[in-house]
């Protein structure tokens, strides 16, 4: 029999708006540059993490989303590091920083590839950043889809939980490429909490636009 699992917390960061569990956490004036909004969120969330400043934009977005998410549901106090999985997806992989790295090598007269840029040219680095910050050691996978695939993601995360590959999973969508900047990460657990909703394709489609 299929077990029901639960979304026990969710955080979305979209242009000018951050939402935690259906409630607006912070908004900024329309037209605010996305990176400026991220800076505001970092300060507002009273996050002190020097490594943040080294990250590329995709990782910054993922990191901030995960911070707000886990401030709200401190799963690392409840589960062992290897019991927590991270399964994230997006459409553009790391193309934002890929384009920046490409620009350093296109012109032979102006050739200056940088290791600090190149290291971010893999989408799963953002999973690594979340794992390092929270000492999470479980299953980790990065999938690429044309758009968020609620059916696949709910199915795969349920499969991990129901098969005891993990006891808790951070999952979602983190996109940062050109004008498409949007992240939604959520926690899926086997037991419901007060504000939980069922971890279903339908609920994910409502959560992630």
């Amino acid at each position: 029999m299929e077990n029901t699992n639960y979304i026990t917390a969710a955080c979305t960061i979209a242009p000018n708006t951050a939402i935690i569990n259906n409630s607006v956490y912070l908004t900024d004036e329309p037209g605010t540059a996305f990176n400026d909004f991220l800076k505001t969120l970092y300060k507002h969330g009273q996050i002190a993490y020097p490594k943040y400043y080294k990250m590329d934009s995709l990782c910054k977005l993922a990191f901030l989303t995960s911070e707000l998410l886990l401030q709200n549901n401190p799963i690392t106090k409840k589960y062992q590091p290897e019991e927590i999985a991270i399964v994230v997806s997006n459409s553009a992989s790391s193309l934002e920083v890929d384009t920046a790295h490409q620009a350093t090598i296109t012109d032979a007269e102006n050739y200056f590839p940088s290791p600090s840029l190149f290291v971010y040219t893999l989408p799963n680095i953002l999973v690594g950043e979340i794992a390092i910050r929270n000492c999470i050691k479980g299953e980790n996978t990065f999938f690429i889809f044309d758009k968020f695939d609620a059916e696949f993601m709910s199915g795969y995360v349920n499969l991990l939980l129901n098969d005891n590959k993990c006891q808790c999973c951070i999952a979602g969508w983190v996109e940062y490429f050109e004008s498409n900047c949007y992240a939604c990460l959520y926690v899926v657990e086997k037991q419901p909490q007060a504000t939980s909703i069922a971890h279903t394709k339908e609920n994910l489609n409502t959560l992630i636009k």
Binding site: I125, G128, I132, I136, K137, E139, T141
Partner: peptide, 9 residues
Amino acid sequence: ASSNDANHI
């Protein structure tokens, strides 16, 4: 199985 060592990127 997969894992993360949560050490360095």
